[in-house]
């Protein structure tokens, strides 16, 4: 392809604008490609990386290409390979299911910096770095608050399949509840799907029927469970992106992934010629994980204080979280 296209990144995203310009004109900038499994505006996993790259766009003079909605693993592999061939400086494979392919592709393109997540594995390759969210930290903090808030002592969790980032988050949340309220019972329901919104809504309703007055959940299909919480006025904790938009009256707080913290390091390294080898993580301590509260929700002062104490404790290392 001689004609290059750059992405017009606006609120509506995904719109295309074809601008032909010579490939030499971005000498000082960088070309970054993202391959991600769901929609760029999913208010969850994919949006977190797209937002982060956009934050850094001006600072690093980025030329950005996004292939989103790539749930087919082989299609993602083809996209990773194609971006590398087209000379992108950094290729971000944003999905833990893409790692196996990346491991095979990266050695063919020693000049390209690949990074992927969430994972803690660089396969010992010099041009692959990985990134991971310590989502159990935010999960723990929100669990602590949930434990302090609940009146019924029943808390509901809706998860997809017990794997990866979802499991890490849910396990952290359950630990947090246990730490703050030994009497509270956490019902965890892995519904067996990342995509079944209707089932996730019913899982939320099942929690509520069993007395849950605080809920959380993770993955794309949680919009269903949030809807159940909204119609029954049950408090909700979000993760991966700020979910306040999904329920202004019920979302207490969200754990937001600020990947720009690690991407900055990855981009700086790439500029300096260091293409990989590092495992990065976002944590509460390095500012990659941020608790964003919903100002419209009148959160009990004690619960908020408990949450803030937990954040401080995790940052200071006083609270140790199991792996």
């Amino acid at each position: 392809m001689n004609t290059k296209y750059i992405k017009q990144l606006g609120i509506s995203a995904v719109m295309a604008m074809s601008v032909g310009f010579a490939s030499s004109s971005h000498a000082e900038g960088m070309k970054v490609a993202i391959i991600a499994p769901s929609a760029s505006n999913d208010l969850a996993f994919t949006q977190s990386i797209v937002d982060a790259v956009n934050v850094l766009k001006d600072e690093y003079k980025l030329e950005i290409a996004i292939t989103d909605g790539t749930f087919v693993v082989d299609d993602a592999a083809a996209a990773i390979r194609a971006y590398a061939k087209q000379g992108y400086d950094v290729v971000i494979a944003h999905g833990s299911q893409y790692g196996g392919s990346l491991k095979e592709i990266a050695p063919d393109f020693p000049e390209t910096a690949f990074t992927w997540g969430t994972s803690a594995d660089t396969f010992g390759l010099p041009n692959v770095s990985s990134y991971e969210a310590k989502s159990n930290e935010g999960g723990y903090v929100m669990g602590v608050m949930a434990g302090a808030m609940t009146k019924s002592n029943v808390i509901g969790v809706v998860g997809p399949i017990e794997v990866g980032d979802a499991k890490l988050y849910v396990d952290g949340f359950v630990d947090g509840v246990e730490a703050s309220n030994a009497d509270a019972k956490v019902n965890v329901n892995y519904i067996g799907s990342f995509g079944d919104v209707a089932l996730s809504a019913e899982a939320g309703k099942a929690h509520i029927a069993n007395g849950a007055d605080v809920m959380t959940g993770t993955a794309q299909m949680v919009v269903g469970a949030v809807g159940a919480a909204r119609s029954e006025n049950v408090a909700w904790f979000g993760t991966q992106a700020n979910q306040t938009k999904l329920g202004k009256k019920i979302v207490v707080a969200s754990q937001v992934y600020k990947w720009e913290v690690v991407l900055r390091t990855i981009f700086d390294d790439a500029k300096a010629g260091k293409l990989g080898g590092e495992m990065h993580e976002i944590t509460l301590a390095n500012g990659g994980l941020v608790m964003e509260f919903n100002d419209d929700y009148s959160l009990d002062a004690d619960a908020k204080a408990a949450g803030e104490a937990a954040v401080a404790g995790i940052i200071a290392g006083d609270i140790k979280l199991g792996e």
């Binding site: 399949i161 019902n187 965890v188 329901n189 519904i191 067996g192 089932l199 019913e202 029927a209 069993n210």
Partner: peptide, 22 residues
């Protein structure tokens, strides 16, 4: 579907078997 969801919520189905239940 509803019975399975309810049983999972109540912890009557071990998490290791949640796919089988689905």
């Amino acid at each position: 579907g509803a019975i399975v969801l309810q049983a999972k919520t109540l912890g009557l189905i071990p998490r290791s078997a949640s796919d089988i239940a689905a």
